[in-house]
Design a protein around this nucleic acid. Sequence first.
DNA 1: CTCTTTTTTTCGAGCCTCGAAAAAAATAAT
DNA 2: ATTATTTTTTTCGAGGCTCGAAAAAAAGAG
Lengths: 411, 411
Amino acid sequence: MTVGIRHDDLRRRNRAMVISAVRRAGQPSRTDIAATTALSPSTISAITADLISEGILVESRTGDAPAARRGRPQVAVRLNAKAATILTVVLSMNQLSAALIDYAGETIAEERRKLPTLELSREALVDETVGIVRRLIGGAPDGQPVMRIVLAVQGITDSSERKLLWSPITPHADIDFSTILESEFEIPVTVENDCNMIAVGLRWRNPERYARDFIAVLLSHGIGMGMVLRGELFTGTQSSGGEFGHMIHRPDGALCRCGRRGCIEAYAGNYAIWRNAKGLPETEAVARDVTDEDIRALAEVARSRPGPEREAFRIAGEAIGFGLGSLFALIDPAPVAIVGHGANAFDLMQKPMLDAIARTAGGVHSGAISFDTEPDEMPLIREGCAMRALTFIDQEVFSPAQTATPGRIVA
Amino acid sequence: MTVGIRHDDLRRRNRAMVISAVRRAGQPSRTDIAATTALSPSTISAITADLISEGILVESRTGDAPAARRGRPQVAVRLNAKAATILTVVLSMNQLSAALIDYAGETIAEERRKLPTLELSREALVDETVGIVRRLIGGAPDGQPVMRIVLAVQGITDSSERKLLWSPITPHADIDFSTILESEFEIPVTVENDCNMIAVGLRWRNPERYARDFIAVLLSHGIGMGMVLRGELFTGTQSSGGEFGHMIHRPDGALCRCGRRGCIEAYAGNYAIWRNAKGLPETEAVARDVTDEDIRALAEVARSRPGPEREAFRIAGEAIGFGLGSLFALIDPAPVAIVGHGANAFDLMQKPMLDAIARTAGGVHSGAISFDTEPDEMPLIREGCAMRALTFIDQEVFSPAQTATPGRIVA
DNA sequence: CTCTTTTTTTCGAGCCTCGAAAAAAATAAT
DNA sequence: ATTATTTTTTTCGAGGCTCGAAAAAAAGAG
C-alpha cells in the first residue's frame, strides 16, 4: 500500500508495458511501441531484444503495410503464439465448456458438453470440471504446457478469485475450484464471475466503445452485471459483487429465485417474464424451467399484439431501467451492453427502460447512455477469460518480481 | 494509461511516499519510515536529507518516548508546519465557513458566517465566497503563502473537480468556482462534494475503522454519501457521483426535492420525515423549511409514544436500509458511518434499517455491516478538505514531475 | 552508385536504490 | 573513567536502468 518503488520494479513494469502494448497493437514496430509507452527508443530496443531472446516476442518481417516509404522499413514484432498456452473453462446453466488458447489468443482446441448442473452432486460437478480440463490439457502442444486456467461461473465468486461462493446453476455452495484444480494439475487457477468476464471480453473486442467506463448487463435466466469504472473491473469488497439483479426494485415485491422479494431479477429474469406473461402470482416461485425458446415464443406473441406478454416485457424493461437509474445515480451514466439471449427481446424492453431511466437521477446526462446488444454471451465470456489468463501470464510470469539471475551461486 | 515508468518517476514517487509516511505516523524516525515504505535505510536517509534541506521536514530531537534503550537514539522527523499553508472552504445550506491550515494540519484561523444561500443571487454567492477567501488569505503568516484552496459544497461537482454542477443550497447551477477563485487569487482550487470530504475526513480521523472499504451517509436536509472502495474515494465517471439519496426506493413514489419521485431522500430527508410525521401527502412538496430543531422535536415525540412521528422515522430507516441493501448487492457489505444531525435520531431508525437490509441480498454477510454515528459533520468536512489539499501539496508541489534543476541556463 | 530518409542499435552519462561498512550516539559493563 | 555493546544513521561503491546522441542499418530517390 504505502510501499516505495524499488529499482528492479522499473524494468519489470516496463516489460509488462511493452508486452501489453504489443498485445493491444498486434504487430507494432519498435517505434510504435516507443510512441505508445512514451519510453525512449533505446529502452524499447533493449526490452524487445530481451523479450525476443526469451521467446516471448518474435519479429515478423512483413510489416502489414510495406508502405513503400523511404528509409529503413519498420520491423514489426508480435507475440510468439508458442510462448505459452492457457485454458479457459466456462461453467453455466446446464453447460460446461472449455478452450485451449495460445499466447496470441488463438483457440487451439475446445470442448462443450451439456450437463444437468442443477441435479449433479457436488462431487459429480467437480469431476466433470476436472475431466474437461484433463482432456484439454492433454491436447496442449508439446513443450508448451498450460500455464494458467481461468474458470468463469455464473454466480458469486470470492474476492481472492478462488471459490464459487454461490451459484444459481447448482444447489451446492462454497466450491473451492482453485484448490481442487491446482492440486490436480499444479497449474494456477482463478475463478471468475461470468459477467465480469463479459465486461473484459467486451473491452477486448471493442476498445473504442468499451473503454474507461461501461456496463454489461446479462439477461438470461437471472440478471447479471459486469462493470468497468476508470478502466478497472469493478468487484465487490469480499466477492465478485455487482449483483445488479438483486438490487431492490420494489420493496417486499415479487418473489425472487434467491428467496428474497422485490429484486430486479424477480421482474426481469426469464422466469419472471414467464410468470407475468402467464398471469401467475408474483409471490410464488415458477415451477417450470423457463428456456430461451420459451422467451423467444413469448416475445413473438408480445410483438404481435398487446396483452400480458407485452406487459411482462414492459415490466422487465421498467425494472432494469429503474435499476440502471439507481446505478447511474451512483456512478453517472455510461454505455451499456445488453448481453445474452434476453437481448433478442430488447426491442420490447427498450422504451419502458428508457422511460424509467428518465424518471431517475440517472436520466440527467442521458446523452451518455447508449445501448448495444449482443445475444450470444458465450464467446464473450471465453474471450474475457482468455484475456484474464493472458494478462496474468504477461504480468506475473513474463515480468516477474525477481530479475532471475540464475548462475549466481551463493555458497 | 499505458505509459512506461521513467527513471525520474522513481524518486518522485518515493519522495511522496516518504512524506505520506511522515504525515500518517506523525513523528517517525528514519528507521520507522524505512520499515513502512520497505525502502532501504540508505534511500530514506538520502530522501529525508533532501526534504529537510528543502524545509519540508524538520528533525524534532525529542522522540516522543526516550525509551531509555541502548544504542543511538532515534531522531524523529515531522512535517514542517511552516512549509505551506492551505485554505479550506465549506459551503453548505445557509452557511459559509473557511479555515486557514498549516502544513502539519493545524488550524491557524477560521471564519464562519450565516448566509441565506437559497435566496442569494449567483453573483452574491460567488462574492461571499471570494470575500471569505480574501479575508483568510490576508491572515496567512508572512512568507507562507496559501498554496491550495479546497472548496467543499453540498451538491454535485464535476469530475475534474472545478465546478459545482448542481446544489440543493442554491437555485443556480454550473458555478465554476475554480476558475473564478483561481483568476482572483492565482492559487489552484478544487471543488469537492461534501460527503466525499466526510469520507476522507473519517479515514484520517480513524484509519483503523475506516480503512479500505467504508461508506459515509450524511443525513441532513437531503441524503448524501461518500464511499471509499479498495482504499480509493469513489466518484462518478463525470461528476462527484454517489448520489445515494437519489437511488430509487419506490418507483413513482413520494415526491423528492429533485423533482423526481420515489428517491430515498423523499422518504428519509428531513423534509420527508416532517411530511410523513405531519400526515402531509407524499406527492406534494414541503413548503416549510424543516430545521434540525424540527427533527429533534419530532424525534422526541417519536420516542415518547407510537404514532405518525415514530412511523415517519421507521419509513426513513426502511428507505435507507433498502438503499444500503441495494448498494451492498453491488459492493458487498462494509462499515457505515451515519453522519450529520440525522444521526441523533439513529436510535429510531436503526431497527427498521437493519430489518430492511436483512430482506436484501446485502444482508447475507451482515457480519461485515456495522454502524457508527457522528452528528457533527462540519469538522469532518473541514478535515477531509484539509487532507485533500495537503495530499495535493505533498504530491504535486513537493514531489513534482520535474526534478527542478534551476540554474541551468540554456541560452 | 551515391544521397536521403527512417528505423534500430550502440554507447556513455546520469540517476537511483541497495548492501556493506563506517560513523555516531547513546547505555551497560568493567 | 573507560571500554564494550547496541542501535540508528550516514557514507560509499556497485549494479541497473533509462535517456540522448551518435552510429549503423536498410530501404527508396536521384
